[in-house]
Amino acid sequence: MSEEQIKNLEEQFEARIARDEKIEPKDWMPEKYRKTHIRQMSQHAHSEIVGMLPEGNWITRAPSLRRKVALLAKVQDEAGHGLYLYSATETLGISRDEMYEQLHSGKAKYSSIFNYPTITWADMGAIGWLVDGAAIINQVPLCNTSYGPYARAMIRVCKEESFHQRQGFEIMMKLANGTPEQKDMAQDALNRWWWPSLMMLGPTDDVSVHTAQSMKWKLKRKSNDDLRQQFIDQTVPQAELIGLTIPDADLKWNETRGSYDFGEIDWDEFWQVVKGHGPMNKERMKARVGAWERGEWVRDAAMAHAEKKQERKQKQAG
C-alpha cells in the first residue's frame, strides 16, 4: 500500500471513530491503534490476574462463612475479568502465550496497586471499597470505547464489579462500627490504601503521555486528573459516613469549585513501584510465574488426554 493510500485509510478510520462507529477485529486499523490497544488491554487483563493474589491471601482466613463466600466469588470474578480481556485482546492478533510471556518477563505492566501487601483483614475492605471504586471510575467510560471487543468486555466487567465495591465497603463499615481495635484496623487500612488508590488513576495530565491520542480513540473519555477528582469527591463523604478519616491534612471542601482540594501525591513512590521496587513486586511475579510453571504438566496432560480421546473416537468411527 502506498503512503497516500494508508493516509487515506487512516482518515476514514478516524472519521468512523468520530462518528461513534465501533471498530471490529477484521476491520482495517492503523498499526498504532492495534499496538496501543494490545498494550492497554493486556495490561488491564494482567491487572485482573495479578489482582487475585493480594486478596487470595485472605480467603482461608476470612472471619465468617459469609465473608468467605463473598471474597471467593470476587476473586473468581477477577479471574473471569482477566479471561474476558485476554480473549478480547487476542482478537487483535496476539496470542495468549505471548501475553503471558510479556507479563512473566516483566515486559508488560500491571496496575501498581497490587504491589502493596495485604497485612490485615481490613485490607480486604479497603481494596474493595477504594481499589475497586477507583477501577470502576476508570472502567465505566470504557464501556463506550471504540474497539468493539474491548467495549463488550468492559460492559460485562462493570456489571459484575459493583458487588465488589459494596462488599468492601460493608467490611469497612462493620469494622468501623466494631470494637476500638477493629476501628483502628479499618483506619489503618484506609491510611495505607488511600494514596496508592489515588495514584492508581494514573500520572497527572501534564505528564501523562498517551492522553491526547487515547482520547481520540475513546480509550480514555476523561483525563486522569478528572477521574481522580471524581473518585475523591465520591469517596470522602463515604468515609465520613462510617466515621473514618481520610489521611490527608490538606483535604478541604472547595466551595467555588464544588470539589475537594487535596494534598500533594508522592509521585516518586508511584514511579518506584511502577519500576518494580514496590513492597510486593517480586513476590507477585514469583507467585504468578510459579503457578504457571507448576501448572504446565496439567496443561500438557489435558492436551494429551484430549488428543487420545479424539483418536479413539476416530478409530471407532472408521
Binding site: 474476558y84 478480547a88 460485562r156 496443561r299 489435558a302 492436551m303 488426554h305 484430549a306 480421546k309 479424539q310
Partner: peptide
C-alpha cells in the same frame, strides 16, 4: 456470542 476461551477439547 459472548466471547472466547482456551480449552483442550470441547468438553473442557
Amino acid at each position: 456470542h459472548c466471547g472466547s476461551l482456551h480449552a483442550a477439547d470441547a468438553d473442557m
